[in-house]
Amino acid sequence: MLPPPVVLHVPDAAFLHEEHFPGAPCVPGSCLMEAVRKAALQSFGRPVICMAQARFRRFVPPGSVCRLIWKLPPSAGPSPDTEGMPGCRRVGWQLAAALPEEDASGGRLAEGEVWLAPDSGEDICG
Rank of each mutant, 00 (worst) to 15 (best):
12 D>N: 05
27 V>Q: 04
103 D>R: 09
65 V>L: 09
86 P>Y: 11
67 R>H: 11
71 K>H: 00
20 H>I: 04
29 G>T: 01
44 F>W: 11
104 A>F: 11
104 A>K: 12
44 F>V: 04
114 V>R: 02
13 A>D: 12
98 A>T: 03
75 S>V: 12
40 A>D: 07
35 A>M: 15
101 E>V: 09
79 S>P: 03
103 D>L: 11
19 E>F: 10
120 S>A: 15
52 A>R: 11
12 D>K: 08
88 C>Y: 15
84 G>A: 10
13 A>R: 07
63 G>L: 09
85 M>P: 10
80 P>R: 14
120 S>M: 10
83 E>W: 10
122 E>L: 15
47 P>E: 14
12 D>P: 01
110 A>W: 05
121 G>Y: 14
19 E>D: 12
52 A>K: 09
51 M>Y: 05
40 A>M: 12
27 V>W: 04
43 S>V: 12
118 P>C: 15
28 P>M: 04
13 A>N: 11
81 D>C: 15
12 D>F: 05
107 G>W: 07
60 V>T: 15
9 H>R: 09
74 P>G: 01
89 R>C: 08
28 P>C: 01
20 H>Y: 05
87 G>P: 05
46 R>K: 10
99 L>V: 09
61 P>S: 13
115 W>Q: 03
92 G>R: 04
90 R>H: 08
112 G>D: 02
40 A>W: 05
43 S>H: 14
51 M>W: 01
88 C>K: 07
117 A>P: 03
36 V>D: 02
27 V>L: 14
104 A>M: 12
100 P>E: 10
12 D>S: 13
101 E>K: 11
111 E>L: 02
32 L>D: 00
41 L>K: 15
22 P>R: 00
88 C>L: 07
66 C>M: 14
51 M>N: 03
98 A>Y: 11
31 C>I: 11
56 F>I: 00
23 G>E: 07
51 M>H: 04
31 C>N: 07
17 H>P: 02
122 E>A: 15
55 R>I: 04
36 V>W: 06
41 L>M: 11
36 V>C: 04
18 E>D: 11
73 P>R: 00
90 R>D: 00
101 E>Q: 15
34 E>T: 13
88 C>N: 09
56 F>R: 01
12 D>M: 11
41 L>P: 06
14 A>M: 04
32 L>N: 05
111 E>K: 00
98 A>K: 05
52 A>I: 04
33 M>H: 03
95 L>I: 14
8 L>T: 12
57 R>Q: 12
57 R>W: 06
38 K>Y: 10
57 R>F: 02
21 F>E: 02
109 L>Y: 13
16 L>G: 01
96 A>R: 07
24 A>F: 09
57 R>V: 07
79 S>L: 10
109 L>T: 09
71 K>F: 03
103 D>Q: 15
70 W>P: 05
5 P>E: 03
75 S>M: 06
53 Q>T: 00
30 S>C: 08
81 D>L: 13
49 I>D: 02
30 S>W: 06
42 Q>L: 14
62 P>K: 08
11 P>S: 08
13 A>P: 01
93 W>P: 01
70 W>Y: 03
49 I>W: 03
107 G>P: 01
116 L>T: 06
71 K>W: 01
